[in-house]
Structures are given as C-alpha cells and as structure tokens.
Amino acid sequence: MSAALEAVDLKRSYQLEGVSVEALRGVSLRIEPGEFVAIIGPSGSGKSTLMHLLGCLDRPTSGALRVNGVEMSGLSDTSLAELRNRTIGFVFQSFHLLGRTSALDNVALPLVYRGTGKAERRDRARRALEAVGLGHRLDHRPSQMSGGEQQRVAIARALVGEPSVLLADEPTGNLDTRNGDEVMAILDRLNADSGVAIVLVTHEPEVAAHARRQIHVRDGLIELDTALAERARDEGGAR
C-alpha cells in the first residue's frame, strides 16, 4: 500500500530582492494512511511552507512529492486542483470561512468544485456539520459563531469531500484553551473513526501530544522524527 504522502528531499526557496531564501532545505518524510502526525518547530522554521507543499498548493524548487502514490510534479495546475479537491482537506489558523455565507454553504463549497448536485451537497454538508457537533448551526454565518465553532465548521469543510489527508496549520492558534481542546478532541475522534490521516502544525507541546508521531522542524530541516527514532531504537534493541 502506498503512503498517503511521501516527500523525498523537498526543497523550497524564495527569491527576495535577488537574494535566495531557503525555507525548506531537503525534507523527506512518509505519512501512512490514517496516521496522526504533529509538525513542531519555532516560528519561521518552514512549517507552513512544508504544509503548502504537502497540500499541493505550491510546487517545490526541487525534490519529489507523491500523493497516494501519484507524483505531483507531472501534474498540471488543473490536475493539482482536482487532486486537492479529492484527497486533501485544509484547516487554517484563521478559519478562512466565507463571511456572508451560511455554515452549510461554507462546508458544501469543496463539493461545488467537484460538480456534485445541490441536494447531495447539502446532505453531505449537513452530515459533516453534525459530525463536528454543529447540527444546530447549519444556517449561522461565521460572524454569528464563536471561534471554536468557526474552526469546527472549517474542519467539517475539510472533511466533507472525504479526503485521505487533513492538513491543519495551527488549528488551535486563534482559540482559547477550552475551544482548542474541543477542536483537538474532534480531530482525535475523526482520526480514530474515519481513518483520515492528519498532519497538524503547532508549536504547543500539549497539542502536539495528541499525535502519536512528532516531527520537529528547524531552519528548513527535519531535526527529529519520533517514528524514525523509535524504529532506530527498536532496531538497536534487536541487535
């Protein structure tokens, strides 16, 4: 079975006024279907950059990325959009909901780009909202909901299309502890129930602790990957 995501020596540099800034300097990782991974690192270490690459929102300067075994560098922008639509769900720190649109329509948006009919869209969006405990907020607009509720709407939107990977960039960053815990509880449950792989960016150790595996990033490089460390230890113990 192929990995949900497999990155090999990913590099990403930006040109800033003629100077090349290396945000990622060669990252390799493999995320299996259904895994729950936290990416931790200081500000500016390249976490978001990595997230955008894993989500096929951006193209690496060099290196390879396979999504469910498909190499993305060979795909057109249009194909990448379709890939994102079907296999990846995004959750952002600042929610990114459409302001004057109901929760239901916000959640249904990915299905619009898939060409799903209206009745089915509404049905699936309603079920996704019920799954995050917002069955009673279908017609509320973002401005009529708390931050925690808004982030749960965003999670419902990320999951409505039944992706294989959910990428969450500091999903609790804008929330207080109670709302943050609630969001994390939902992510735990979704990962356990639906088997969606979750890659979560955070710099809070308590949040990272929800994941079985932690990847520490510093200066555009992976400093520590607990999965590799465990395997190394196991192999070391066997010897």
Binding site: G55, D77, A81, R84, R86, R157
Partner: peptide
C-alpha cells in the same frame, strides 16, 4: 484575495 486562495485550496481550478 484570501477568498480566492481559499477557493483554490478547496479545489477551484483557474478556470473556475
């Protein structure tokens, strides 16, 4: 701009 970015993240193609 942010709305456009979001739509693209959710799978909107350039054409959409």
């Amino acid at each position: 701009t942010r709305e456009i970015g979001l739509r693209k993240a959710l799978g909107a193609r350039q054409r959409d």
